[in-house]
Amino acid sequence: MSYPKGTVMHKSSSIPVVLTIAGSDSGGGAGIQADIKAISATGGYAASVITAITSQNTLGVTDILPIPLAHIESQLDAVFGDLNIVAVKIGMLADSDIIHLVADKLRQYRPQFIVLDPVMVATSGDLLLKQSAISSLKECLLPLADIITPNLPEAAALTGLEQPNNADEINDMVLSLRQLGTSAVLLKGGHLEQSSYSDDLLITQNEIHQLSAERIDTINTHGTGCTLSSAIASFLAQGDDLQQSVSHAKEYITLAIGSADKLSVGQGRGPVDHFFMLHQSK
């Protein structure tokens, strides 16, 4: 797939609406901001429900302000009550109460596709969700999702297994991931930094598809998980099947990472280049 300058990627006469439910990143690299960029860049129309506001930049997170539960509910009712939301991407939910609320609203409004990025583990390795909230996530949201997109630390937290350190240990985790009760899992292998390739596994109940891309030497990977899951939701909303959506999203994030160093944003781990297609001729 190529993305020539000016390409419009949505296939229907009306643009498909994709809702992101996640936290806000004031630095613009991850969370709601990355989701909106990725959905827009891949041809969807992005709506949002914000679950928390962070004080954040490329150097880290300095403060988090949770959104009151009643206002999260009113945001959900507002967007679902007016917009024809085809796909939903779910990111940071913070606690069990928010998880239960989002699950209830998804059962009420029944969007066609649900993509869950289980944001649970910080780059430092610290858990961002309490164990009770992880249990709520597994019980309430995973059964509703068409696909979940954990990285290796998140997959370990979901399954209770040790984090894999090589391809054999990743393969040993497949059965436990299939037993989580979701339709499909995209297990992201980006944390295997000793590998020269970034290999992801699309795991369904009957098949495993490997998606491979050469690892790109850059520190500017802030927001890759948010971006990838949002792109999957966007492609699903446009009519691609699951395997096509994951493949197209993998190609999109690879190109966005490959162009990330051109942005030179911030002093730490910068964002990927969501709109790399606009910079191809520069």
Rank of each mutant, 00 (worst) to 15 (best):
M1G: 06
M1E: 04
S2E: 15
S2A: 14
S2Y: 15
Y3S: 07
P4E: 13
K5C: 10
T7M: 14
V8C: 07
K11P: 01
K11M: 09
S12H: 07
I15S: 05
I15Q: 14
V17L: 02
V18Y: 08
V18P: 08
L19P: 00
I21N: 09
D25G: 13
G29Q: 07
A30C: 11
G31F: 01
A34I: 04
I39H: 03
T42Y: 03
T42W: 05
T42L: 07
Y45D: 02
S48Q: 06
V49E: 11
T51G: 13
A52F: 05
S55T: 14
S55V: 15
S55I: 12
N57R: 07
G60I: 11
V61A: 04
T62Y: 09
P68D: 13
I72V: 14
E73T: 09
E73N: 15
L76E: 06
F80A: 05
F80P: 04
D82C: 04
L83D: 00
A94E: 12
D97Q: 15
I99L: 08
H100Q: 15
K105Q: 12
K105S: 04
L106I: 11
R107Y: 00
R107V: 12
R107F: 03
P111H: 11
Q112F: 01
Q112N: 01
D117E: 05
T123V: 11
L127F: 06
L128P: 08
L129S: 05
Q131L: 13
S132G: 09
S135Q: 13
S136T: 05
S136Y: 01
L137Y: 05
K138H: 01
L141D: 00
P143G: 10
L144D: 04
A145Y: 08
N151K: 06
N151M: 07
T159R: 11
T159F: 10
L161D: 13
Q163F: 00
Q163M: 15
N166K: 05
A167H: 14
D168M: 14
I170V: 11
N171P: 04
Q179R: 09
Q179M: 07
L180I: 12
T182P: 07
V185F: 08
L186H: 02
L187Q: 10
K188M: 10
G189F: 12
G190S: 05
L192Q: 04
Q194R: 14
S195P: 00
D199Q: 11
D200V: 13
L202G: 08
I208N: 05
I216Q: 09
I216Y: 02
N220A: 01
T221S: 05
H222Y: 02
H222G: 03
G223L: 00
G223Q: 00
G223R: 00
G225R: 11
T227N: 04
S229C: 12
S230A: 15
S230C: 10
A233I: 07
F235V: 08
L236W: 06
L236E: 01
D240E: 15
D241W: 12
D241G: 13
Q244W: 03
Q244F: 03
S245F: 06
K250A: 12
E251S: 13
T254W: 14
L255P: 06
I257K: 01
G258A: 01
G258L: 02
G258P: 01
A260F: 00
K262N: 07
L263H: 04
V265L: 00
Q267F: 07
Q267T: 14
P271H: 09
V272Y: 03
F275Q: 05
H279L: 00
S281L: 12
S281K: 12
K282E: 06
K282I: 08
